[in-house]
Design a protein around this nucleic acid. Structure first.
Lengths: 155, 155
DNA sequence: ATGCTGAGTCTGGAATCCCAACTCAGATGC
DNA sequence: GCATCTGAGTTGGGATTCCAGACTCAGCAT
């Protein structure tokens, strides 16, 4: 049975893309990774419209990727900040994969703008594919997609 | 200098998200990875509006991710098919990272729908992060982002 | 000549997006 | 007490984009 007979929606890529698949979600998550927590900081740094940011954050909170957490700075009233949940932090592999691709294929004039380093040893961090047997999977390495129990037929 | 002083657009994640950051692009690329090459097949399998698919494919071709290639099936007239370029195939790490996240955090009732296997050895393929010194980077591992020459100040 | 098919293009209405202005609550100043 | 400021949204109107379905077009088949 060809893979194309399986329902496209029953695919983890589709489910993830449904959450992250818009112009802003990925950038919001990236800034949260960088420690930015406040609404106005996100809004100004990204240049996103305020109402859109409100909706994106609400969606990310609904999806369990972001937590809206109250806090009160010294001598100010109670406010809210946005921080990644553990599920959100698990998106780091996705973020690094996106960054790696951009570094190689859209480097800009002056080369890559940022480098992600392992804090313990200072070496650069990159995303890559390996199989469970430990083989490195390069771009040209052949792979095959095998349907499991969770697969559904289309139609 | 805090990271937030750097221009958000001068970021490889932003550049990549600008191309892949909509509801459909990622799914189109996924289907191209699965060997689907023809317009109508993509349109029907994804349920995407025809004009939107036309625009997405044109954008992916412009960006060098997809090649529009003429071919002529036996006894039919000349047609076009869409195939990934080497830059497009480099997106596999991104796709697998998205799939891995979905498998863990949005598994569906019956578990993950698909498994990606190394064709040579049959073992499952996953995306992960390692530093150049060979350390495995887990979700909780601390990392830091270091500005390079390509970084620009905001404003 | 007529029909069929793959690959689009066209059209009108729905949904999003953007920008700017407005609101609201509590802290601060006078 | 009263006006002001600030962070975090909410609201309103116009511009884009999205969608579904109808239409087009080229060449093979009958």
């Amino acid at each position: 049975m060809p893979l194309t007979d399986y329902d496209s929606a029953a695919c983890s890529i589709a489910r993830t893309a449904q959450i992250l698949g818009d112009r802003w979600s990925v950038l919001v998550v990236r800034n949260l990774f960088n420690g930015m927590r406040r609404f106005d900081a996100l809004q100004q740094h990204l240049g996103i419209a305020r109402d859109v940011l409100t909706k994106r954050l609400a969606l990310l909170v609904d999806e369990g990727i972001v937590e809206r957490r109250p806090y009160q700075p010294e001598g100010e009233r109670l406010r809210h900040e946005y921080v990644l949940t553990p599920a959100g932090r698990d998106l780091r592999t996705v973020m690094v994969a996106l960054m790696d691709w951009g570094d190689v294929h859209r480097p800009g004039q002056d080369g890559p703008p940022m480098s992600l380093r392992h804090r313990d040893c200072g070496a650069e961090i990159h995303a890559h594919l390996t199989c469970a047997a430990g083989h490195e999977i390069e771009t040209a390495t052949r792979a095959e997609l095998v349907p499991l129990a969770g697969a559904k037929l289309a139609g």
